[in-house]
Structure formats: C-alpha cells, structure tokens
C-alpha cells in the first residue's frame, strides 16, 4: 500500500506542475480519467488509512507511535532502508557501468538476471536467501534470524532500482564529452568525478528514491528471513501486521501513516536533490 503510493509519486509525470493549463476537450477527458483512476486506487485508500488512524483518537495514535516497540521498528526500518539505499547507489552505479561500458562473456545474461529480485515474489526471495544464509547454509554463513538478515533481504529486493535508472542514462551519455575532457587534460578519475557522475546524478537519485521506498515497504522476505523480534529485528511493516493480527486496526493504521510521512519526506528530499543536480553548474 505505502509502496504503491511511493512508486507513483516517484514517477516523473508528477514532478513538473504546469503553471498554465493548455487543456483541450480531449486532454481534459484524459486528465479526468487519470485523476479518477489515481484517486480510486491510491488517494482514497490513503485518506481512508489516515481516517482509520485518526479513528482511535489522538491518544491511541500517540500511544502507538510513541510506544517503544513501534518506535524501534520504524527507526530500524528507516535506518536500514537508508543504509541499503546508500549501498545500492554505489553498487548499482557500478553494475550499470559494467553493463554499459564493458564487453564480456555473459553480459546479456547478467543484464537479464539483474531484474530477478524485482520479479520474484518477495516471499520467494526470502526463501532463496534462507537457502543460502539459513541454518543449513552450504557456505556456513548463518545470517538468517540475526540483525544481518534485514539489510541482506532489503539489499536483495532493491538491487535493480539504481541499476535500471542509471543504465539508460549512462548509455546515452555522449562519448565526445569524455574525449573533450581528456584532451583538455583531465585524467580518468577527474572525468568520472567532474563529467560523468554529475550527468548521472539525477538518475542515481531517482533510483535511490525508488530503492528507499521499496526497502521501507518490504515485508515478504523479512517475515521469513528475520526473526522479527521486537527491538531487534522487527521492521515497521511486520509491526503493522502484528497490530492487525491483534485486532488493533487503528494502531496499525497509525504506524502506516507514519511510514507514509517518512516516505513522502524522503522522496521530496531526493527529488529536490536531483533537480538541483540537474541545474547546478
């Protein structure tokens, strides 16, 4: 649910709001359909969750949010999502670089395989990771049910985002520009730092936003892989599930609305950053 909102908000279509309208009857209809569809699927349910959260009254809301377990879960979710996003920024850019710039055997295969974490049902992703890092690990790494389980699962499911946003931009990058910098005396590192990375920055931040949003919303793989102990390895989405199982819908909605706010803030921040990067000199 949160992830659906977050994914939608990250789409570039919503980024630029026209200051004047240029609506013809045809485009008015298209706009009407778009807004209705978006409202039915996203806005109204979201309003409903906020209403549910408010339904228990301010005291319930505050009690839920400020309870130690919830706070610890939300905090860990945000921290781990941020950490994994940072890792993705580095690794994703590197993988995209290798896929675009280098020629090697198995490149096409790697290019396809990258999307697997994205395409797998997340519960299956959990199962896959459990096979390798669980109690019966063939490589002797027993990360399942420890604190390492959370970043591991998040890194697995969010891997493709930065790769897939950076890859096309890197592919379109004019090779002339790097040659021009080289003939002006810039070494490879300088070219990377001053020419290539600034051009990729908008793509990287867009990928980071998607990756963060996905990480903060992850549930399926964590249910299997992490022991979900309060204060230790329980993430916000699992906390929401716990509340629902206990019949406390208002409390669950309160956590959900908090996650919603966090996602919104992060996405707005990253969006501002990428716009600044696009304009900066």
């Amino acid at each position: 649910m949160t992830s659906a909102l977050v994914d939608t908000l990250a789409r570039p279509a919503l980024r630029r709001r026209a200051s004047r309208t240029n609506l013809t009857p045809g485009s008015s209809l298209a706009l009407g359909i778009s807004v209705t569809w978006f409202s039915l699927l996203v806005l109204i349910p979201l309003a409903a969750i906020v209403a549910t959260a408010a339904g228990g009254g301010w005291s319930t809301y505050w009690a839920t949010i400020s309870s130690g377990e919830t706070f610890a879960a939300v905090r860990m979710t945000v921290e781990q999502a941020a950490l994994v996003t940072l890792v993705n920024v580095v690794m994703g850019t590197l993988i995209a670089w290798v896929l675009v710039r280098d020629r090697f055997a198995g490149k096409r295969l790697l290019d396809i395989v990258i999307d697997i974490p994205f395409a797998l049902p997340t519960i299956v992703a959990g199962l896959v990771l459990l096979g390798l890092y669980g109690p019966t690990s063939p490589v002797g790494v027993h990360w399942a049910y420890t604190r390492m389980a959370v970043p591991l699962a998040l890194a697995f499911v969010t891997l493709p985002f930065v790769v897939r946003t950076v890859q096309p931009v890197l592919g379109e990058l004019d090779h002339d520009v790097e040659e021009a910098a080289a003939s002006l005396g810039a070494g490879r590192l300088t070219i990377l730092r001053r020419i290539v990375l600034p051009s990729l920055l908008p793509a990287i931040t867009a990928g980071a936003a998607l990756s963060f949003a996905r990480a903060i919303a992850e549930y399926g793989s964590l249910v299997l892989l992490s022991s979900n102990k309060p204060f230790q390895s329980e993430v916000a989405s699992v906390r929401v599930m716990t509340y629902i199982e206990n019949g406390s819908t208002a409390a669950a909605a309160s956590v959900a609305s908090l996650l919603l706010v966090v996602s919104l803030v992060v996405i707005v921040l990253l969006d501002t950053l990428s716009r600044k990067a696009a304009r900066r000199g």
């Binding site: 002339d176 520009v177 040659e179 910098a181 080289a182 003939s183 810039a186 000199g281």
Partner: peptide, 28 residues
C-alpha cells in the same frame, strides 16, 4: 590525449551540459 597539449573541437560541440559557459571554458 591528456599530455599532447592539443585542443579538440567536435562536430556536435561536446559541451559539459551541467556546467555554465564560463565553467566549460575554465575547465582545462
């Protein structure tokens, strides 16, 4: 190319899009 002290101008300009005109010129 870095050590040949050669100025090169490309057909499609090869501008550094994220830099101002002055920054482009000052790069070298």
């Amino acid at each position: 190319p870095q050590r040949r002290n050669v100025g090169f101008v490309f057909q499609h300009y090869a501008v550094f899009k994220h830099m101002t005109v002055a920054k482009n010129v000052a790069f070298g």
